[in-house]
Structure formats: structure tokens, C-alpha cells
Design a protein around this nucleic acid. Structure first.
Length: 920
DNA sequence: ACTCTGCTTAGAGGA
């Protein structure tokens, strides 16, 4: 049976005499998870004593009644599993498979058997390659996570050889595969100063060995191959992607030489971990294969014997248990938040490639390490900052891991309701494509759109994302049919959002780079030790708007940084364009960045509108991320290495999201100035990713609108922009003239959120009404809708996230405005909850934009209707954050209609003032 | 209690 629970106290270690001699054991007090006894034996098919289930349960209740530690059940871990017990701390989750139950002094206890596996924190999915690093040296794992893997040639060729290997398994021609794969990586090769020819030669040498070996196999027997399988294990808490599976057993490819008889230990560990996952899914694996591609016939010598690139090895039970214990060490370390020192392993630092990095990091961060420390530790404030943000990012990472857990914890229906999966696909066909890849097509049933978009990478499965046939696939098209491309012909019946740690990985690296690689002056600014300085400029950049003019002067003249605070409609992007234009004039190289692709593209559009030469611009990003009308600016990565690298390096303006700024390619670039738009929506480390690449930076944003989206409540919720605006008011300029809203509409947000400093830019803006629009007449509206701001009182229907009554009234309102001559395209409806968005969408014509506040940020409409879905006491996070209401109220140009329950809204002072304004 | 974007969404190597 499988035992699962939470550790609730200290572990006791003992040595006892048994019939088999002296043995170690660890007694772990555990509070069993619900269902441990009920699930008894059924799930994993083990023969257990079903008849005593009831007895055991009742015994436990009896014990609970008169013992202080009521919930604790002792779980005994025998032998080597005591090593995993060693890393346990109260609060951690523990699973023991194939455990045996036994009664001791009237208490039910559990213990490991020879068939047991012990898993610490099973819900934390440890990556197989992380275990590979960890076994070499735990500190290597940590350093890899912290500083990332820089762009280097061996890594690129390694990746290429793997891709070609996959292609060969899929029956592709070797030369065609090499040429295509090299071409795809032209930009990286170019940045490394490598030519396509020499790289192709290197790849060919490695791939030839594989091809020869594959040929042998084909002659002798019919091999059952599968390439690139994504593996997730819910029992063992592991994930990874095996290079290949042959007859059910893992095959790992290594682009290196190994002249010894045995595979490298860390390589065996990697293969064994895949075997463990395959075993969970019904296999029984006792061999693994490693392919060392630099082993060739030339290396064959008398002493070592036969040296084909392939080395088979047998995997015993002991190895499988060992690799799982390694995995447990990582999970425990991640749960407890400790930093490894390297002393956990007996690796020799003298031979380590990362020795210098290790010593520097240890020295700078004042960490204990086996290799020792060099250099001076960072000041206390910086160390503290690092630790706080490190913890915050790791907390965020754990949230991502919780998302993995939902792949198997939630029922398909719950997944679909959460918009995280489409579960009722009907498989149509799998068609083989030219490159050996597959196009998968499935028909959609009734379920909604979920959060999928074309270009997304998703987990495509036969219906079982974990344990079934599953593979990562890219969404090519999404309409009636879902069209995907994948390496394998999965009979797709379901697609799931596949959680990614990429953002958290990059945040961590950005934090590391800012603190350990950042120059001192930059850190003086970030740590509030020095006032930003400015060059004084006499030029006038914007003639008719003093604040914008001042903002451009600050941006251009900044020696350290400038902060531009741009409330709604104040011409932020125009100010950015003018600044960039002036910087271009000065011959500077500029990085233009923002959190979202949409914001990057908006800013880029403003540059083009301002007449900046498109030939100077390179937009770095994915095809699906970049807006279709800006694709011509997108930097193509394929082609000739020299040419591609010139296209990037000759670009005077490079535009990319902050996530892309953290990519290896962008990290090779440097700029005079980084300009970051929508900076109030970025976490501190997110902002670092962009500003790390430049000498100076300009942040543009509005901290009275939406904050960064983060899963966990921690320091990541405050943006660097907001912190710096408060610290250095003199480095900032607030744009105070808005070009969007009628004065009536603007009045409340200005007073409430901007100290009354926000004013209409011109009399024409102040007095704009619906009458200005062609064919629209306010007199055609009912009398109580003629004012630019009005309120409709609809008593709440008591539902939490929807209000059918409000939705119906909104549908009526749309008709009213249409009857007065308004185009539907000019009307927008904003609701706080997605559920209400769908409720409204059902009732209004499709060309009326209905969306959540969050998605409306950054855009505007002639008429905006806001649905509050407020009932009762207004409690709820959505109403606590006034920044959200600010965004909602500042979207319209000419008319704003608020729809909600007056009584509920009046219960909050801010909303009460809002009503006073709307009804006045 | 809610909102929800990034990412060639993983992984590649060197004694």
C-alpha cells in the first residue's frame, strides 16, 4: 500500500539488531493524508490486508482520544532510506510505496519493505537533469540555477547533435537534417563566431557515429524506437525529457568521448531516473543505454575492447533507490530553502569547471562552500536584498510546481473548468511532415477556448497527460479543429497548459547578474545610496506639452536613470518615441522593452509613427509573440550565421520583452540605454533583466494602474518603478495632461489617484462628447444617459462572480447606445471576473469588446460600461485593489456607465466617492 | 474569494 502524509515532528534514528544483523532505522511521525487507509491496496494492486482496514482505523481513533500528539502515526524507514529521513523536516510531505502496516502496542504503524520507495515532497517535480548536476556536486546544481548557462559552442553543438539524433530516429536523411538544424541556429552560431560549415562538420562527426550504430541495430533486429519522450512521475516527483526510448528502455545521447568501459556515473544516474518514471508507467526496466558520439572506430584499442558509441548497462534496484534518494535531497533542499555547500558530495573541486564561479559566488554572497571563497562579500543591505528576492522567486517557482501537480490532481472536468485544458478532443489524424515531425489534428467538442493561443507549447496526450501517451506540441491552428505539430504521432484527445519555470529561471539569473555583475554606480542607485544625475540639456523636444518635454529631457539627459510616470491617456508612448528619436540622433544604441509583447509592439508602433527608420530596428521574439503587422521588423534567426549576427548587432534599436532580454542571445548584447515601458507591471528582477544590458535606464509606467502578476504574495508585487519613484522624486516626471477623457470622466480618477494633478491636455479634449462622433446624437439617448458619467443601480443577485441581472441591463444599454447611432466597435464592457465576462458576452453582439480590467489596460474606447458584480459587503481581492478600478474608469473617451449595486458599493469609502461623482 | 503574461516553455557540455 502507499502511505502518504505530512511529517509532524522530529525524526528518531536508531540502530537495531535484527535477524539479518545490525540495521539502521528512522522513525518518522507522520499525520496521514486523507484516504491513506481507504485507498489501501486498491490503487497499486498490492496484496494487503483489506480485512483489517476498519480495525486499524478504529484503533487509531481510540489512540487519538487519549494521546496528546493525536494525529501522529509512526512510519519507519529502514536501511538506506534513513538517508532520506535525514533531510526530512516537520511540515514536509512523505510518501512510502509498498509499505507494510503493523500493530505495535495497540497503535498502527507503517514501515518500508524491500519493494518500497520513499519520496520526499512528491508534489515538487524535480527535473532529471538537475539530479544529474546534483550528483556531480550539489553546488553545481545551485550555481546553474543562479547564473544560468551562458552561450557557448559545446552546448550549441550538443543541442544540434541531439536534434539530428531525433531526426535520424524519425527516419530522416542525415545531411538534410544537419543542414536544416544548423540553419535554424544561425544566430547563436554567429554570435559565437562559428561558420555554418565548421559547425556542420563538427555535428557530422558526432552524428556519423550514431548513424553507424543505428544501422547495425536495424540489420540485426526490429527495434522499437521512440524519440524525445516527455516523462512526468507523480509518484516519484520527477519530470524530464528522455532523448529516446528503445524497447521501453531509456537511451541517452552524450556529445562527448568516453573511452572507459562503463558509462559516466552521472549519465547512468540520468538514465536510471528515466527508468524509474517508465517503471511507474508500467515498464520493468533493467538496462539503459548511453551513446557517446565521439567514440568512433578510431578510438578502438586493444585494451578497452569494443568501442562502439553505445554502452549498455544494467540497472539494479540499488541504483534506482539511490537516484531517488538524490532526488529527495533536492526536493528537501528546495522545501527548506537551504543553500548547498558542496560538502554534501565528495566531488573534487580541483577538477571542476565551475570552481572559479563557485568561489566568487561563495565569496560575494558570503556562502559556505567546499571550494572556498574569493573576494569581498556584498554589503549587508545587498545580501539581504538578494536573500529576500531569492526566496520570493523560489516561492513563485513552487507555485509553478503546484500547477504541475494539478495535471493529475484535478479531474479532467476541473481542468477544463479552470480553462487549463481542452479535454474532449476527438482525434482526427496524424500526418507525417517533411522533416519527420508530425501534424496532429483533432476536432473540438463543446468546451470553451481555455487559455490557449496559437504558437503555445502544450502537453498533447491521448487523454492521460501523466502516464499516458503524452508529448509537447505546438499549437499551429486553433478553430473548429486543433492543429498541432509534435515529434511523435500522439493520438491527441486532450491538450493541457504545460507550466513553465522559464520566467522564474530568468528572474533568478537577472537578480544574480544585477547584484554580482552589476557595476557599483548602478547598485548605488538601486540601493538608494546615491541620487541619480542628469546632464542639463537646453533643447526643446516637445513644444506644446511641458511635462512631456521635461520627460524627454530627463530620459535623454539621464546619467543613471529617469522615471516617467504616465497616467492614462497622457501620451506615454509618444514620449517614448520622442526620447528614442533623440537618443538615435546622438548615435546611441537603445534597448526597448516591456513585460508583454503587446506593450513592446505598441511602443514600437509609436517609434514608426514618429518616423524612425525601420531599418535601424530589430524586434527580437517569437513569431507568435510579435504582432502580425510588425513581423517585418522581427529578427530572423535562421540563415547564415554571419549575416544573422550582423542583423542583430547593427540594429541601433532592439525591442524585446523582458523575458527575452534574459535569453542567452540577448545577454550577449549591450546598450547605452534601456527604455522599459509598462514598468509598473514588472517585478524588480523582471526589470533587472532589461536594465542589466544597458549603461543607463528609463522606466515608464504608472504605479496607480495594475501591478505585476505574481502567484505568491511577496516582494515581487512591488515594482522597481514604484520604489524608485518614491525614493527619487527628482528623477521622475509625471505627465499631467491627458488626451483621452472628457473632463467629467477624468475628474474622479484625477482626484482620487493623482492628487488632482491630471488635467485635460486641451479644451477640445475636456469637452469631447458623443456628439462629436459621426451620426451620434446625445439627444437620442434617454435623459439619464446624456451625461458623460452615469450610474445604473442594479441590486446584486447574490452570486459571487456573476450577476445575470447586471448582464441583462448591460445588453439593454448597448442597444440604447446603438439606437443613438453608436458603432458597436466603439463600445467596451469591463467586468471584474471572467465568469461575468462570459455572462455578458452571451447577451451582447460579438463586435462589442467585453473583457476583464486586466486585459483592457493599455487601450481605450469611446464608450465604456463597467459591470461591478458587487453584492453584500464588497469583500474580495478584486475590490481591495483600487488600481484595478482606476484602470476601468480611465478607459473611456466620451462616455462612462457604471452598473452595480449601490448599496454594496457604498459600503466602501472609495466606491462611495465614486458613486457620488457618477450621480452628481 | 480574483486578476493572468512570459518562454524556441527543455536541454545541450566540459575533465
Amino acid at each position: 500500500m502507499k502511505v502518504r502524509g505530512t511529517v509532524v515532528g522530529e525524526v528518531t534514528m536508531r540502530t537495531v539488531s535484527t535477524s539479518a544483523g545490525e540495521r539502521e532505522l528512522a522513525e518518522v511521525p507522520v499525520r496521514l493524508a486523507d484516504g491513506t487507509t481507504a485507498a489501501d491496496g486498491s490503487a497499486d494492486g498490492t496484496a494487503t490486508h483489506d480485512h483489517d482496514t476498519d480495525a486499524a482505523t478504529s484503533t487509531r481513533s481510540a489512540v487519538e482520544a487519549d494521546r496528546p500528539d493525536v494525529d501522529a502515526t509512526t512510519v519507519t524507514l529502514w536501511g538506506k532510506w534513513t538517508e532520506s529521513a535525514d533531510v526530512l523536516e516537520p511540515g514536509m510531505e512523505l510518501v512510502v510505496t509498498e509499505a507494510e502496516r503493523d500493530e505495535f502496542r495497540g497503535e498502527t504503524q507503517y514501515a518500508t519493505t524491500t519493494d518500497s520507495y520513499v519520496v520526499v515532497e512528491p508534489s515538487y517535480l524535480v527535473d532529471v537533469t538537475d539530479v544529474r548536476n546534483w550528483v556531480q556536486c550539489p553546488r553545481l546544481y545551485y550555481l546553474n540555477k543562479l547564473s544560468g548557462v551562458p552561450l557557448n559552442y559545446p552546448v550549441v553543438t550538443g543541442t544540434l547533435v541531439h536534434e539530428v539524433f531525433g531526426d535520424l530516429l524519425r527516419g530522416r536523411d542525415l545531411d538534410a537534417s544537419i543542414d536544416e538544424r544548423i540553419e535554424e541556429r544561425a544566430l547563436e552560431l554567429g554570435l559565437l563566431g562559428e561558420s555554418a560549415e565548421s559547425a556542420a562538420e563538427d555535428v557530422r562527426q558526432n552524428a556519423a557515429a550514431i548513424e553507424g550504430w543505428l544501422e547495425q541495430g536495424r540489420l540485426s533486429e526490429e527495434d522499437d524506437w521512440r524519440s524525445e519522450q516527455l516523462l512526468i512521475s507523480e509518484t516519484f516527483g520527477l519530470k524530464g525529457r528522455a532523448d529516446a526510448i528503445r524497447r521501453g528502455a531509456p537511451v541517452e545521447l552524450k556529445t562527448g568521448k568516453n573511452l572507459r568501459k562503463e558509462p559516466r556515473f552521472k549519465d547512468k544516474v540520468q538514465a536510471a531516473l528515466y527508468a524509474l518514471v517508465l517503471e511507474e508507467h508500467g515498464g520493468s526496466i533493467d538496462t539503459g543505454t548511453l551513446l557517446y558520439t565521439k567514440n568512433s572506430a578510431l578510438d578502438r584499442n586493444e585494451e578497452t575492447g569494443d568501442l562502439t558509441p553505445a554502452k549498455d548497462f544494467s540497472m539494479g534496484r540499488g541504483l534506482l533507490e539511490y537516484v531517488l534518494r538524490l532526488r529527495n535531497e533536492i526536493a528537501a533542499m528546495e522545501a527548506s530553502g537551504t543553500v548547498p555547500t558542496g560538502k554534501e558530495a565528495d566531488a573534487k573541486c580541483e577538477y571542476c569547471f565551475e570552481r572559479d564561479t563557485c568561489m566568487v559566488v561563495s565569496g560575494r554572497l558570503d556562502q559556505e562552500s567546499k571550494a572556498g571563497q574569493v573576494g569581498q562579500a556584498l554589503p549587508e543591505a545587498e545580501l539581504d536584498h538578494f536573500e529576500r528576492f531569492y526566496r520570493a522567486i523560489e516561492e513563485e517557482r513552487r507555485e509553478v510546481h503546484r500547477e504541475y501537480g494539478k495535471l493529475w490532481e484535478q479531474t479532467p472536468e476541473e481542468r477544463a473548468d479552470d480553462d487549463r485544458a481542452i479535454v474532449d478532443l476527438e482525434f482526427v489524424e496524424a500526418r507525417e511532415l517533411d522533416g519527420g515531425r508530425w501534424e496532429l489534428r483533432a476536432r473540438r467538442g463543446s468546451s470553451g477556448t481555455a487559455k490557449f493561443r496559437e504558437g503555445d507549447l502544450v502537453l498533447a496526450s491521448d487523454g492521460e497527460p501523466v502516464g499516458g501517451d503524452a508529448e509537447l506540441a505546438r499549437i499551429e491552428r486553433l478553430d473548429e479543429d486543433v492543429v498541432l505539430t509534435a515529434d511523435e504521432p500522439v493520438e491527441v484527445a486532450r491538450i493541457d497548459i504545460y507550466p513553465s519555470e522559464l520566467t522564474t529561471d530568468r528572474l533568478l539569473v537577472a537578480l544574480h547578474d544585477a547584484l554580482l555583475k552589476g557595476d557599483e554606480r548602478r547598485k548605488d542607485i538601486l540601493f538608494e545610496r546615491a541620487e541619480p544625475e542628469f546632464e542639463s540639456l537646453d533643447e526643446t523636444f516637445v513644444g506644446n506639452n511641458a511635462a512631456q518635454d521635461e520627460a524627454v529631457r530627463k530620459a535623454v539627459g539621464a546619467r543613471d536613470c529617469a522615471l516617467i510616470h504616465g497616467p492614462p491617456g497622457t501620451g506615454k508612448t509618444y514620449t517614448i518615441a520622442r526620447s528614442v528619436d533623440a537618443m538615435v540622433e546622438r548615435g546611441e544604441r537603445i534597448l526597448l522593452s516591456a513585460f508583454t509583447n503587446r506593450a513592446v509592439d505598441n511602443a514600437l508602433e509609436a517609434l514608426l509613427d514618429a518616423g524612425i527608420d525601420p531599418d535601424r530596428i530589430a524586434r527580437v521574439g517569437t513569431e507568435s509573440g510579435v504582432r502580425s503587422d510588425l513581423q517585418h521588423l522581427r529578427l530572423e534567426r535562421e540563415g547564415d550565421p554571419d549575416e544573422r549576427v550582423r542583423a542583430l548587432e547593427d540594429a541601433q534599436i532592439v525591442a524585446a520583452t523582458t523575458a527575452t532580454c534574459g535569453s542567452r542571445i540577448m545577454k550577449e548584447q549591450s546598450f547605452d540605454v534601456a527604455l522599459v515601458d509598462e514598468a509598473a507591471q514588472l517585478t524588480e528582477p523582471g526589470t533587472y533583466a532589461a536594465i542589466n544590458l544597458a549603461e543607463r535606464f528609463v522606466l515608464v509606467g504608472d504605479h496607480h494602474q495594475l501591478p505585476p502578476v505574481v502567484q505568491a504574495e511577496n516582494e515581487l508585487v512591488e515594482s522597481l518603478f514604484e520604489r524608485l519613484v518614491e525614493t527619487y522624486p527628482d528623477a521622475g516626471v509625471m505627465l499631467d495632461r491627458q488626451y483621452r477623457m472628457n473632463q467629467r470622466i477624468q475628474a474622479f480618477p484625477s482626484r482620487e489617484f493623482y492628487d488632482g494633478r491630471l488635467r485635460p491636455a486641451t479644451p477640445a479634449v475636456a469637452s469631447r462628447t458623443l456628439d462629436d462622433l459621426d451620426g451620434v446624437s446625445r439627444s437620442a439617448l434617454p435623459a439619464d444617459r446624456r451625461d458623460p458619467v452615469t450610474f445604473v443601480d442594479v441590486p446584486g443577485d447574490g452570486e459571487r462572480h456573476t450577476d445575470a441581472e447586471e448582464a441583462a441591463r448591460i445588453a439593454d444599454l448597448i442597444e440604447t447606445y446603438e439606437a443613438a447611432g453608436l458603432d458597436r466597435e466603439d463600445i467596451g464592457v469591463i467586468a471584474p471576473f471572467r465568469a461575468q465576462v462570459s455572462e455578458i458576452e452571451r447577451r451582447v453582439p460579438a463586435d462589442v469588446t467585453v473583457d476583464t480590467v486586466d486585459r483592457f489596460q493599455g487601450s481605450s474606447q469611446e464608450v465604456i460600461v463597467v459591470s461591478f458584480v458587487a453584492s453584500g459587503d464588497l469583500d474580495g481581492p478584486i475590490f481591495e485593489d483600487y488600481r484595478r478600478i482606476n484602470v476601468g474608469l480611465t478607459r473611456p473617451k466620451r462616455a462612462l456607465v457604471l452598473v452595480g449595486d449601490a448599496e454594496a458599493l457604498e459600503s466602501d469609502p472609495v466606491y462611495r466617492r465614486m458613486l457620488d461623482w457618477a450621480r452628481s
